[in-house]
């Protein structure tokens, strides 16, 4: 029984992260009719932003280990959201804005190109080797930081290893990490829903997604709405990136590709354009993946990817709007 609960918990957490990325994706598609393949890269940029801010020795203040940890986490969330949003808006401005009105295929190709460009820049600036996310929840082992050491991972075992004394007393177990993840996820999800469903800006964005012309005729300008949507989507993806690396550990330039694809699938299953749909789709996907790995025998469990995609295909054929999607005037 406890095994089931553990795996359910794993599945939910994974699902929430997929959902968070999917929300951004869904929002952008709704507003701009644009499949943003570079969305996974915003996730990656957010993770790196959080990595660097967590590694900065500035936050290791002697106020007490608990406070240090708390502030490190808060700053990491903010930095990851900000970096995700920043890159998102940049990509929209530089890559998508002009091409979007011209040709759908060209826009898609530009999106793929932007995704590759971001990955390659990540390779060069951050180095392609996976980095461990500094365990803000356990005693930290830190060699003297230099700028290049900051940007590039350590190329070998430091000869001496120093343990900073202020964090030595604190050791949050992995379940503590999970608790933190859940709390941040809950806030992020609540924040996203609140923003879209309860604020005026959210209303404007929803109006533009339903019908751009009508929205314009009541005075809503679509371009700022699109930019805000990109920013919000990017921020959510960035936070997901931070949480992902906190929980799973590895940070490397390609890390956004597969979660991006999975979130994409989740968005479509849940209904592209619908925020709740994206979250539901993400949860479904995460649970499906985890539980099928947990309960299927070893040889078969590898097929879970194929099953996920088959699910997608079935949805596309039977109900392309997804579970909670709305008619956008050009579905099947």
């Amino acid at each position: 029984m406890s095994y089931l609960l553990t795996q359910l918990g794993n599945g939910l957490m994974l699902g929430c992260m997929y959902g968070l990325i999917a929300v951004g994706f869904s929002l952008v598609y709704g507003v701009a009719r644009l499949m943003n393949f570079a969305h996974g890269e915003f996730f990656m940029v957010g993770a790196y932003g959080a990595l660097f801010s967590a590694e900065l020795p500035l936050w290791r203040w002697g106020n007490g280990a608990g406070a240090t940890m708390f502030w490190t986490l808060v700053i990491s969330v903010l930095v990851s959201a900000a970096s995700g949003a920043l890159v998102s808006v940049l990509v929209e401005r530089l890559a998508y804005r002009r091409i979007r009105r011209v040709s759908r295929t060209a826009t898609f190709l530009v999106a793929v190109g932007a995704s590759i460009l971001l990955q390659q820049i990540g390779f060069k600036v951050f180095s392609a080797s996976p980095r461990g996310f500094p365990d803000v929840c356990t005693p930290v082992v830190v060699a003297a930081p230099t700028l290049s050491g900051w940007l590039q991972p350590s190329a070998g075992l430091p000869c001496e290893v120093a343990v900073t004394s202020q964090l030595q007393a604190v050791a949050l177990s992995p379940s503590g990490t999970s608790a933190v993840t859940f709390v941040v996820l809950a806030f992020a999800v609540w924040g996203a829903l609140f923003f879209v469903l309860r604020t005026d800006t959210g209303l404007a964005i929803r109006a533009v997604s339903i019908d751009e012309k009508s929205a314009r005729s009541v005075g809503i300008r679509p371009q700022p709405a699109i930019v805000i949507t990109f920013a919000v989507g990017g921020a959510l993806a960035g936070i997901a990136g931070f949480l992902w690396s906190l929980r799973y550990g590895g940070v490397q330039p390609l890390m956004g590709f597969i979660p991006g694809v999975k979130a994409f699938v989740a968005a479509v299953i849940g209904g592209v354009g619908s925020v709740t749909g994206a979250l539901v789709g993400g949860l479904l996907l995460g649970l499906l993946e985890t539980l099928s790995f947990a309960y299927l025998p070893g040889e078969v469990s590898g097929y879970r990817d194929a099953v996920t995609l088959l699910l997608l295909l079935v949805f596309l054929l039977i109900r392309p709007l997804g579970l909670l999607g709305r008619q956008f005037g050009e579905a099947a």
Binding site: R104, V268, A331, A332
Partner: peptide, 10 residues
């Protein structure tokens, strides 16, 4: 039966 983006996805 499918159009545009949905065809691409399929």
């Amino acid at each position: 039966r499918l159009r545009g983006d949905y065809m691409a996805l399929a």
